[in-house]
């Protein structure tokens, strides 16, 4: 009898405080989410809506959407401007080179780390991670004269090598940890069926590493597409430089180009990251899981 009443009051008091608590919790959670979405989303929204305004529309004052008179798509013609087009083309070439180099080299090294038990293996992999400590500026300043002597200044190869090296340590770790999760018996059964080590690698391992390859290529893409420091120093010529230092120079030298055009080209350049962020986020988060190991 008494126990029943006890449990009854306990239940009721628990329910009430629980309700209050859960209301406060919900308010805090959704309130936080709203604040964060506003802070992160506002600059992107502002860039996007101003990319569709005429120059006069921006100068007339701050509006939150382009009106019928100020709406235009002609700002996007800036990519047909030979200078900006050249920057974008250079960025494409360098990014493609970096992504391909990183994928191939990280696959081979990751396979070696996962499947061969060689001396000083873990130490070597740890040593690679020390690469995080090197500042791009500390590396780029000496590289400038080294590349100058080797004739690699203003050449795609020079920049591709530098950016691949920067993306490499993490890509190799990710591939190593990922290949470790693929059972060795799958490869062994291929060898029993007469496949060589190379065939086993190509036909059994490589197709299964697709998620890790996607994560690696997006991270390498982000480094190469967004790099400013290396390109700024190693590609001093206006003809050779990539988009980030190029548009920076244009911004500081040309009074002819208006904000609307800069916003239009910025929007175009941030489209691939936006699409990757939306469609590939689970792969990227998987990559971060391994990074946290």
């Amino acid at each position: 009898m008494s126990t029943e009443r006890d449990s009854d009051t306990f239940g009721r008091s628990f329910r009430i405080s629980h309700t209050y608590r859960s209301v406060a919790y919900k308010l805090g959670l959704y309130g936080s989410a709203a604040v964060l979405v506003a802070i992160l989303g506002f600059p992107i929204y502002w860039m996007a809506q101003n990319a569709f305004k005429t120059r006069l529309g921006i100068q007339e004052g701050i509006t939150f959407l382009p009106s019928a008179e100020t709406f235009t798509v002609e700002q996007f013609e800036i990519i047909f401007n030979p200078t900006v087009g050249r920057y974008l083309l250079n960025s494409f070439i360098v990014t493609a080179g970096v992504v391909i180099t990183v994928i191939v080299v990280s696959l081979i090294a990751g396979y070696g780390l996962a499947r061969f038990d060689y001396k000083h293996k873990v130490k070597t992999a740890r040593f690679l991670l020390l690469g995080y400590m090197f500042s791009p500026i500390v590396l780029a300043i000496p590289l400038y004269l080294i590349w100058d002597t080797l004739g690699l200044l203003n050449r795609y190869v020079g920049l591709i090598l530098a950016l691949s090296a920067v993306s490499m340590p993490f890509a190799v770790w990710l591939m190593w940890k990922y290949i470790q999760t693929i059972p060795e018996s799958m490869e062994e059964s291929a060898w029993v069926a007469g496949a060589s080590r190379w065939r086993g690698f190509r036909d059994v391992i490589v197709p299964q590493t697709k998620p890790a390859m996607i994560a690696n290529s997006v991270f390498a893409f982000a480094i190469a597409w967004g790099d400013f420091t290396f390109a700024h120093i190693l590609m001093p010529d206006n003809e050779a430089t990539t988009f980030p230092p190029g548009i920076f120079r244009l911004f500081h030298s040309s009074w002819e180009t208006g904000w609307a055009e800069f916003m239009a080209v910025s929007l175009l350049v941030s489209l691939p990251p936006l699409l990757f962020a939306f469609f590939l986020q689970s792969y990227l988060l998987q990559g971060f899981k391994i990074r946290a190991l």
């Binding site: 600059p43 982000a222 400013f228 548009i247 911004f251 941030s270 936006l274 986020q281």
Partner: peptide, 27 residues
């Protein structure tokens, strides 16, 4: 709604620094 927030988070991670600079210099 976590997809919206995480997309924004990934976008700010992947977007080139120069774009962030341009957005804020404009604002």
């Amino acid at each position: 709604g976590s997809r919206l927030l995480s997309t924004l988070v990934f976008t700010s991670y992947l977007i080139p620094t120069i774009i962030v600079t341009m957005m804020f210099l404009f604002m």
